[in-house]
Design a protein around this nucleic acid. Structure first.
Length: 493
RNA sequence: GACAAGGUGGCUGAAUGGUUUAAGGCGACAGACUGCAACUCUGUUUUUUGUGAGUUCGAAUCUCAUCCUUGUCUCCA
């Protein structure tokens, strides 16, 4: 029997602002859409956290036995600059600065994005559609919205008529809690000579001026699609009119997701998303990340240590563990101290998992493995509460260490259950990787074993100066010797 | 200004009315181990939940006020 039948998953729905029992449209299948990266620069660390949260959601749904179609788009059409660079496309701007083709920029940062997500052990989505690959569908959707009378053309651009949409009994603002009247007051002063009917209307299609490189023909002339349209188009194309889960960063709630709801609802007449999930933001050293103040770091720079923010390089598994120790809906403070603490905890967890293969079984168990297992699932079923799940894993770590010291006992069947559950949660669900695993080569092993042997001889001769020299200099190289009852072992840090 | 998400121990970070005299990780302290350490293990430790009122038999959890942080305010993940 599939695990989802015995686990009642609850998800916090941003739309209702409450935890709801998860019930997919089609039993046993889940359609999930997550707003993907804009590929005109390296993926932002905060963005990576969002994607990592949904990678965990994807993993847990798969673990529960759902057939999941996970769609995460690539925004490669670029968007307008919000500052004085009027009418210029972000990707086109970058391309001009670097004197290369726009699609070259797209390609470079798409590859970078895939490289980074692979390093952080993300599962690839089921479909990764691009905005530029769906221009035809986007034009079709605009036509459909115009046919319903909810969009209008001005000078080669098409805008969504928000006021009319609301007059027909809809609620633009249903997700973000904003009301349309306030929006008028807040934007009127800034938006004097707009060609829009109302300031809160948003663009579905934008006319391209001469300088705009990325452009496509349309019934309204040459132009490019509005930012919000691609997600409506691609989610309905691959997941249908009503999808189960739509995810993204908190910052996308308004206007992006609000506009998505309006566009999709205008076409289909139904609420397009059953469960809206929003991952919270990330701070760096208790402050917002900003390139201009230097308070920023790229995901790749964490792994190499080439940055001014952290004292050393950290493995992808450590970073992932650190992020999973916080709830996806909480603001997370990324810091050197936080990572150092997580690294220790992470190492303890991994050591315990490694120990599982060498455990002796007995006639009884001094730990209720079945109950513990259920508690792990209960944590995940409660809106993917990974911090609690990890706390539970450390209950098992303590037990495993007691087993190693023969201070606890376990039966054969309980050990099998313990191993299965630990591996499922640590590797399949949390997606952690054992950073240290593949670092030691045979040559290194042999060399260190030789030094351990020399040190052992020195110690037998009470030559503490020599034995300490070997120990300390190896430590400086990142090789830590561990003197145990049955001899000396080592780990590579 | 409006809307949204938050403010919990030395740090990180759970718990949304009573089984929590606030989980787990890190740190600190003590013991075991060690030639001494480190590692590891075992045990102990700290806060009364931004501030001020209120509701309740009972509040971190609900209400009100106030301060602070972060995000967003229409083409910026």
């Amino acid at each position: 029997m599939e695990l989802y039948k015995e686990n009642q998953l609850k998800i916090y729905n941003s739309l209702s602002k409450s935890k709801e029992v998860f019930k997919p449209v089609t039993e046993g299948r889940v359609g999930m859409y997550v707003c993907g990266p804009t590929v005109y620069s390296n993926v932002h660390l905060g963005n990576l956290r969002t994607f990592m949260s949904f990678d965990m959601v994807f993993r847990y749904l798969l673990h529960l036995g759902y057939k999941v179609r996970y769609v995460r788009n690539i925004t490669d059409a670029g968007h307008l600059e919000s500052d004085a660079e009027e009418g210029e496309d972000k990707i086109a701007k970058k391309a001009r600065l670097e004197e290369i083709e726009p699609m070259e920029v797209v390609q470079r940062y798409t590859v970078d994005f895939h490289t980074i997500t692979a390093k952080y052990n993300f599962l690839p989505p089921s479909i990764e559609p691009t905005a530029t690959g769906h221009i035809v569908e986007q034009i079709e959707m605009i036509k459909e919205i115009m046919d319903k009378g909810l969009a209008y053309e001005v000078n080669g651009s098409v805008y969504f008529d928000v006021l009319k949409y609301n007059e027909e009994g809809n609620n633009y603002g249903i997700l973000s809690g904003r009301n349309v009247e306030d929006a008028i007051h807040n934007t009127r002063a800034l938006d004097g000579q707009s060609e829009k009917k109302n300031p809160q209307d948003f663009a579905l299609w934008k006319k391209a001026d001469e300088r705009h490189i990325m452009r496509w023909p349309s019934p309204w002339g040459e132009g490019f699609p509005g930012w919000h349209l691609e997600c409506s188009v691609m989610s309905s194309k691959y997941l249908g009119e009503q999808i189960d889960i739509h995810g993204g960063g908190m910052d996308l709630k308004f206007p992006h997701h609000e506009c998505e709801i309006a566009q999709s609802h205008a076409c289909s007449g139904v609420q397009p998303v059953n469960y809206w999930m929003h991952a919270n933001m990330l701070l760096l050293n208790s402050q917002k990340m900003s390139k201009s103040t230097g308070n920023s770091i790229l995901p790749g720079e964490i792994l190499t240590g080439e940055n001014k923010v952290l004292s050393k390089a950290f493995g992808a598994g450590v970073v992932r563990f650190f992020i999973m120790q916080a709830n996806y809906r909480s603001i997370l403070d990324f810091s050197n101290d936080g990572l150092l603490a997580s690294e220790k905890g992470y190492n303890r967890l991994m050591e315990a998992v490694s120990l599982l293969d060498a455990i002796q079984t007995g006639g009884s168990s001094s730990f209720d493995v079945a109950k513990w297992k259920q508690e792990c699932y209960d944590a995940m079923n409660d809106d993917f509460n990974t911090p609690i799940a990890i706390a539970k894993l450390f209950d098992a770590v303590k037990f495993i260490n007691q087993l190693k010291d023969n201070k606890a006992t376990i039966t054969e069947s309980d050990l099998t259950l313990l191993k299965e559950t630990m591996n499922a949660f640590v590797f399949d669900i949390l997606g952690l990787v054992n950073d240290a695993k593949d670092e030691g080569s045979n040559k290194l092993d042999g060399t260190v074993e030789l030094l351990i042997k020399l040190r052992k001889e020195a110690r037998e001769n009470k030559d503490w100066a020599l034995s300490d020299k070997i120990r300390d200099e190896l430590a400086e190289l990142g090789i830590q010797l561990k003197d145990g009852r049955e001899g000396t072992t080592f780990t590579v840090n």
